[in-house]
Design a protein around this nucleic acid. Structure first.
Length: 133
DNA sequence: TTTCTCACA
DNA sequence: TGTGAGAA
């Protein structure tokens, strides 16, 4: 326990993603594990980065944006600028999600109205049938 | 088991 | 933003 070395399958299992996905993120330059020959060896900080990537993904950020945000972890990064960038992206994303929620609420209202109207018409049609019989 | 690469949605 | 398959 308390090891600083993780295999790709360790992390894949822990975070419920496929090893393909982890290599995909590496391809995008979002994680850069050590190598033992060809085999990837992930450290605690690689693991932390992966965790941040996945959190960003849950929040709906693009991989490109996530990459810029977590480059906070790089030494010598201009952390004030990075924090500003992250803050701005969070505000943008919050706005997008709220806007989407608004659209969804409107769609739900319309559907409920439609369903209610349709049921009324169905009942009317049924009653007309009884009168004519 | 893990890797790489190419194709594909 | 990922996945599948083939080959090593």
């Amino acid at each position: 326990m308390d090891k600083n070395r993780y295999s790709i399958t360790d992390l894949a299992e822990e975070f419920q993603v496929t090893s393909r996905t982890i290599r995909f993120y590496e391809d995008k330059g979002m994680v850069s594990p050590e190598r033992d020959g060809l085999t990837r060896i992930y450290s605690r900080s690689d693991r932390a980065r992966l965790k941040l990537i996945l959190r960003g993904r849950r929040l709906g950020f693009s991989l490109q944006d996530i990459k810029k945000m977590i480059d906070l972890y790089d030494p010598e990064a201009d952390s004030k600028e990075q924090l500003k960038f992250t803050l701005q992206k969070c505000e943008d994303q919050l706005g997008k999600l709220k806007s989407q929620r608004h659209d969804i609420d409107e769609a739900i209202d319309e559907l409920e109205t439609s369903i209610s109207d349709l049921m009324t018409h169905l009942n009317d049609a049924a009653n007309d049938g009884k009168k004519l019989a």
